[in-house]
């Protein structure tokens, strides 16, 4: 078999898996949406409307049709690139997602970056100093990160660093006086400000991003730290570590040039999955920090039985996970030579 046919088969197989994943996602979300005891018609028209108007809107929304027809209609619509209109916002779902998703990406990226920068060194330290007071201290720090309620953590950060110390800006993505200063290009305000060379806006946006990103990043650091520790411990037990030490390599070099690179593959998966989870939208963090992201959007849509928005959002999240999986697969190949054959 030639290399190109093999690659073609792999691509085909992957393509089929992705298509099946999306179909499954649509199917499950659609059915859950239809069996939930929420009424999209009432949510759309209000509680006090007459029966005639209620019936007319129900007809208009296509909810009188059999479930299977509704599902097929929806799939047909999505294949044409039309995700419908969200009645929670009265805007096309695509436009809504284009607005809220960059906010989430900005927050999740900063969060996972902080999580990695704190989590990995902490994990390495805990593994190397296993059983010592340092290991204990790291465990306490990560335990707090894991178990402290997000809501509480967010408010504490606001009270201390925004209200009392004035080190960071408050809730929202920008201060009011910077609203509308920078044209939207990527939707990531920090990047848009840089592109527009508006440094004040960039500083303001970073000042707003700091606390929610740290709030998320701390939680992520706790997870990444614990995983790093366990990956490191696995590696430290291996024979090659003893060999390296016997050869007279300094402990620093053993850890950072021998052991840590061997954890890279697993770490990449962990970090990618953490990023994926953060991209789903951190509802509580977004709520405390008035961050208009995907989490708040989806939650509101779900309570309103706004199925177009819920389905659209779910598909976006599906795409993210598939893309992250493919991305980390690709990284494996780069990081681990054994996977290349």
């Amino acid at each position: 078999m030639t290399r190109s046919t093999k690659a073609g088969r792999i691509a085909l197989k992957q393509g089929a898996t992705i298509a099946a994943t999306f179909l499954g996602l649509v199917l499950v979300t659609f059915l859950i949406g239809r069996v939930m005891p929420l009424d999209p018609v009432t949510a759309a028209v209000g509680p006090d409307v007459s029966q005639e108007i209620y019936d007319a809107v129900k007809e208009e929304m296509g909810l009188n049709k059999p479930l299977l027809i509704q599902l097929l209609d929806y799939i047909g619509q999505v294949l044409r690139g039309d995700f419908g209109v969200s009645f929670s916002t009265n805007q096309p779902v695509i436009r809504d997602i284009a607005r809220v998703f960059p906010a989430t990406v900005e927050l999740a990226a900063a969060g996972v970056l902080i999580g990695t920068l704190i989590g990995v060194p902490l994990g390495v330290l805990a593994a190397v100093k296993r059983g010592t007071a340092i290991d204990g201290a790291v465990r306490v720090v990560t335990l707090v990160g894991h178990s402290a309620p997000v809501f509480w953590k967010g408010l504490i950060l606001l009270v201390v660093f925004y209200a009392a110390l004035d080190w960071a800006n408050g809730p929202g993505r920008l201060s009011v006086y910077y609203e509308g200063v920078v044209p939207t290009r990527t939707g990531l305000i920090v990047i848009d400000a840089i592109l527009a060379r508006e440094w004040d806006v960039m500083r303001d946006a970073l000042g707003h991003l700091a606390l929610p990103a740290f709030s998320l990043g701390y939680g992520a650091a706790a997870y990444i730290g614990r995983m790093t520790r366990s990956f490191m411990l696995d590696q430290l037990r291996q024979e090659y570590v003893s060999v390296a030490r016997v050869k007279g390599l300094s402990e620093f070099r053993v850890v950072f040039t021998e052991v840590l690179p061997n954890c890279a593959v697993q770490l990449v998966t962990t970090i990618a999955l953490t990023f994926g989870l953060l991209l789903e939208g951190a509802v509580l963090t977004e709520t405390v920090f008035a961050w208009p992201g995907l989490g708040q959007y989806m939650t509101k849509a779900m309570f309103n039985a706004d199925m177009n928005a819920v389905l659209g959002g779910t598909l976006v999240i599906g795409v993210i996970f598939v893309a992250l999986n493919l991305g980390s697969d690709l990284l494996y190949r780069i990081l681990d030579p054994r996977t290349r054959t």
């Binding site: 900063a110 970056l113 920068l117 004035d166 080190w167 009011v176 990047i191 840089i194 970073l206």
Partner: peptide
């Protein structure tokens, strides 16, 4: 265009050290 500010490291440093906030009354 100067994009060096966009480097993740720069952002991380900015975030970890805290940005002097631009507070004022509305």
């Amino acid at each position: 265009m100067n994009l060096k500010f966009a480097s993740p490291l720069a952002i991380a440093v900015a975030l970890s050290t805290g940005i002097p906030a631009l507070h004022a009354e509305t």
